[in-house]
């Protein structure tokens, strides 16, 4: 990796002000994407501002009809948390299938969302469960947060502090992994919350995570695996690469959605 300045922030304000005075800063959460990128010399930030020393950014809070998860909460701690497991088991399941044990013990929900990898799992959870992203400045609705691959609504001096997930009536997540990386080739979160049906798809879209409105419509009237599977998704705007054609991804969206409905019960 190239040389950079390492700074460990003691508070949110510290982190933001350190970023403000650096030439090309990067916040370091779990580092599960950033560190490999640096090692490959694909990024050259002037400063890495480590968030791991900031108190109060990790943990799960039960608010009754919602759960708030701190931005620095590791995937393994979401997967194993009793509140998450009982109130939103689909979210615990999703977190338990991110990467491998090493990644789950380092990677954080806030880091994953700020990075917005188009094949990451958490964006599907946030969009599918209609979560709210809480930052040091404001609250951002899921539908407004994701802004194309590796791009979000976050401003330069804005830090995710937590994510608030409404407890759904039903939810399920199913992923078809890329055989090599085991990121999502297609991952689908389906959820019904207070009469609203949402279906979020990761791994497939050219612009990152998106809502599959055709499947949402089909499931709104008929919450069943067959209804989801019966939707023929368009392959326009879907990724095509050596692992999967757009056509295959379109097909897998319906299949994964139907299996997610089965998992949701």
């Amino acid at each position: 990796m190239y040389q950079f300045n390492y700074q460990k922030a003691g508070s949110q304000d510290d982190a933001v002000s350190a970023a403000g005075s650096a030439e090309d800063p990067k916040f370091l959460a779990g580092g599960m994407t950033l560190i490999p990128t640096l090692k490959q010399r694909l990024a050259q930030p002037s400063d890495l501002i480590d968030l791991s020393g900031i108190d109060g950014l990790a943990g799960v809070e039960d608010n009754g009809d919602s759960i708030t998860i701190g931005a620095m909460t590791r995937h393994v701690d979401v997967a194993n948390n009793d509140t998450v497991k009982s109130k939103i088991p689909a979210l615990a399941h999703l977190a338990s299938h991110i990467g491998d044990p090493q990644v789950r013990n380092r990677g954080t929900i806030g880091g994953s969302l700020a990075n917005n990898d188009p094949a990451a799992d958490y964006p599907a959870a946030v969009l599918g469960l209609n979560a709210t992203v809480i930052t040091n400045k404001r609250e951002i609705a899921a539908d407004d947060f994701f802004d194309g691959m590796f791009t979000t609504a976050l401003e330069e001096d804005e830090l995710i502090t937590a994510v608030k997930f409404p407890v759904p009536d039903k939810a399920g997540y199913t992923k078809f992994p890329n055989p090599a990386s085991r990121y999502a080739l297609v991952g689908v979160m389906v959820a019904q919350t207070g009469g609203e049906t949402r279906v979020a798809v990761t791994g497939a879209g050219q612009d990152g995570v998106f809502r599959a409105s055709d499947i949402e419509s089909a499931l709104s009237g008929n919450w069943s695996a067959d209804a989801a599977k019966g939707v023929k998704m368009s392959d326009a705007d879907l990724n095509s690469d050596i692992h999967a054609s757009a056509e295959y991804r379109a097909h897998l969206i319906s299949v994964m959605a139907s299996r997610a409905v089965e998992a949701a019960g």
């Binding site: 055989p179 090599a180 990386s181 990121y183 050596i242 692992h243």
Partner: peptide, 23 residues
Amino acid sequence: VLEGCVYDDDGQLLTGSYMDYTM
């Protein structure tokens, strides 16, 4: 069922890491 090296027409190795080459 898993492993396959892929070059594009320009001779760039598309399966140049474990992100793309399936062990």
